[in-house]
Design a protein around this nucleic acid. Structure first.
Length: 165
DNA sequence: ATAAAGGCCACCC
DNA sequence: GGGTGGCCTTTAT
């Protein structure tokens, strides 16, 4: 899964959020990554792994402005997720879930017309490159339990709680 | 090409 | 609560 056109003016930065420090990566094409890593080193390794050809330059100030607009909900920034067709269709479906609501992995599978692919849907949701903005935290199991979360279940809980009001 | 690994689910105990 | 088998995509051999 490789991006064909190179990112224009690729940048990244770290910034505090209601859910701990995030790492956000963006270019003129939009946000390409938003993560909530344990450490800054792991965040950078992540970026390097996902974009081996791209050399991002650090811009914490711009990152902070972006992050502020995200969590104050002043405006929805442009997203630039990179993935397979299957993944993109799922990440797109996630964005239809209203804030404060939840759905299930099985219902997402239905929504994209692949009702049998539930397991693969879970995997694809786990590969969501833009946490929070692509609201993978709003997807739980059919039996009502929380399911998984790449950045820790506490973080998933906190996001759902935060959106409840 | 093929194996192995997943943020799942239904079904059993 | 826990374990098994089936399902489908992605990534690493």
């Amino acid at each position: 899964m490789r991006q064909l056109p190179p990112l224009s003016d690729p940048s990244y930065g770290f910034s505090p959020t209601p859910f701990g420090e995030c790492c956000i990566a963006f270019s003129n094409d939009g946000i390409c990554a938003l993560t909530f890593p344990e450490t800054r080193e792991s965040a950078l390794r992540d970026l390097e792994h996902r974009f081996p050809e791209t050399d991002f330059h650090q811009n914490d100030e711009k990152a902070a402005r972006l992050v502020r607009s995200i969590f104050e909900k002043t405006k929805m920034p442009r997203l630039n997720p990179i993935g397979t067709e299957f993944q993109l269709s799922i990440w797109n479906a996630l964005q239809q879930i209203p804030a404060g609501k939840t759905t299930t992995y099985a219902l997402i599978a239905e929504a994209i017309g692949r009702p049998k692919a539930v397991r693969a849907v879970g995997t694809a949701i786990g590969a969501n490159p833009i946490a929070f903005l692509i609201p993978c935290h709003r997807v739980i199991r059919t039996d009502g339990s929380l399911g998984g979360f790449r950045w820790g279940l506490e973080c998933k809980k906190a996001m759902l709680e935060w959106e409840k009001k």
